[in-house]
Design a binder for these strands. Structure first.
Lengths: 132, 132
DNA sequence: ATGATATGCAACATGTAGGTTGCATAACAT
DNA sequence: ATGTTATGCAACCTACATGTTGCATATCAT
């Protein structure tokens, strides 16, 4: 959809100016995404907007404290952030870091695109040398 | 770069035909990607082509057994596969599953794009409205 | 002031990821 | 036949992620 359009929110420095995202930077993002509860939190935040811990805990299947930890996990990966609002703590997506994460994903996907095509070409020429 | 071009290998059904990838399916992929050693393995496979366990172990910084485990971890996420070739075990990327993984990433990225724009619009109009 | 609500903090249990070492086995080279 | 190379298998260790419970504290509503 909006895949190759330059984003207005962030000027996307690292991926464009020649500096490809390194594995080291991508790892914590993937780690953060590697949990069903956290993915659900991200989806809720991306569809319902900013929410408090308590609201995010409802229907989550785990305790509020567990949700709190997941939120901080997402936070240290730079995917979400929070602000205090009265006695509530409101969490929302961090657009800036989200853009960076998106570039990681794009980068990985592009790598795989290239690899897939190399693989295709490879298979076409190598098919018979391996096995009967 | 090759982001919006329809892929020849797989006709990208899920992003088009309505079946969006669920979190449950994406989680193991992200888990597999959430490790520096494994990302390096994927990168090597995507640039150097199919390699044996021993070759993948060289310069990896950990033991061969550790690499073996990482490879099987990537394998159970469907990102790589292996075949026996003499006394060697050759690992390579699994193009089919890779395409599915790529769609996950695209889906997530698209979600975030939309959320980012909603956020932008939200901030522009909501700056003063605190609570419902 | 008082009770209800939202969160913070800390201790604890448990599973498992990631790594190691040691030895066994299979396939190759000579 | 024999040594070398590539891998398999298993036991073991350690750190940490995930979840819990219990209690304390801050904020709100009345």
């Amino acid at each position: 959809m909006s895949r190759s359009r330059p984003h207005p929110l962030t000027s996307s420095p690292s991926a464009r100016g020649g500096t490809a995202p390194r594995e080291r930077d991508a790892v914590p993002v993937f780690v953060a995404l590697g949990d069903a509860t956290r993915l659900r939190l991200l989806r809720r935040l991306s569809t319902e907007g900013p929410l408090s811990i308590t609201r995010l805990s409802h229907g989550a299947g785990v305790t509020r404290q567990a949700i709190t930890r997941h939120l901080y996990a997402l936070g240290s990966a730079g995917l979400v952030r929070h602000r205090k609002l009265g006695r509530e703590q409101i969490w929302d997506l961090d657009a800036k870091r989200l853009e960076i994460a998106r570039q990681y994903l794009d980068h990985v996907a592009a790598q795989w695109d290239a690899a897939a095509e190399r693989l295709k070409a490879f298979v076409e020429t190598q098919e018979e040398t391996t096995e009967p």
